[in-house]
Amino acid sequence: MDYDSARDYLLSRPEAAEDFPFGPGVAVFKVKGRMFATLGIENDLARTNLKCDPGEAQALRDIFTGVLPGYHMNKKHWNTVLLDGSVPDYEVERMVDQSYGLVVRGLRRVEREALELAYGPDTIYR
């Protein structure tokens, strides 16, 4: 997966919005104002930070060489995924979906229920 494919997939999540609060080099993706991913390029290598269940975060790091502790993030809850081909596209998409779902679960009830009603829980929690 490359930068453009990752960006397109991140923006395909319901009500995902792209912002640049840290400057033009790092895109931040939010749902209802809450961050679920970052995406940037450093030294010609695209990378994304994704929220992760703490129990799964270390397992993913052990399985994939391109999954590292979250860069500039809480390393218990965030992983950095290098988009260098070492992690299959379907696995990156699964991690994006999980990150998005974890953030939605943490929204206020009224916001979460509005998303679930508008898009269906199967779309929100893939």
Rank of each mutant, 00 (worst) to 15 (best):
I124K: 02
P88E: 03
S86C: 05
E91H: 02
G106V: 08
E93N: 07
E91C: 00
R105Q: 07
R94K: 05
Y100N: 08
Y100D: 08
G106N: 08
V96W: 04
P121S: 15
S99P: 04
E91L: 04
E91Q: 06
M95V: 01
S86G: 08
L107F: 10
I124V: 12
E91P: 02
E116D: 07
D89K: 07
Q98F: 10
R94H: 01
G120W: 08
R112C: 08
E111R: 09
Y119R: 06
V110W: 10
E111F: 12
V87M: 06
I124E: 13
P88H: 00
V96Y: 11
L117W: 11
D122P: 13
V103Y: 08
D89I: 03
E111K: 10
T123L: 13
R109V: 11
L107M: 09
G85S: 07
R109M: 07
Q98E: 15
A118C: 10
E91G: 08
V87H: 02
V104E: 00
G120E: 14
E91R: 05
Y90W: 02
V103A: 00
R105G: 08
G106F: 02
V104D: 01
G101V: 07
M95S: 03
D97L: 00
L107C: 06
R112I: 03
V92P: 03
R108Q: 09
L107G: 10
R105N: 14
Y90F: 10
V87Q: 00
V87G: 01
A114M: 08
E93D: 07
A114T: 05
S86I: 09
I124A: 11
P88D: 00
P88R: 01
E116W: 03
L107T: 07
E91A: 09
M95D: 01
P121F: 14
V92G: 05
G85V: 02
L102G: 03
Y90E: 14
G101Q: 08
V103F: 01
A118G: 04
V92N: 00
V96L: 09
L115F: 02
Y119K: 09
D89C: 10
D97G: 01
G101H: 07
S86H: 00
R105C: 04
Y119W: 12
D89Y: 02
E113S: 13
Q98Y: 13
E113K: 13
V110S: 13
R112Y: 10
Y90L: 02
A114Q: 11
E91W: 03
P88A: 01
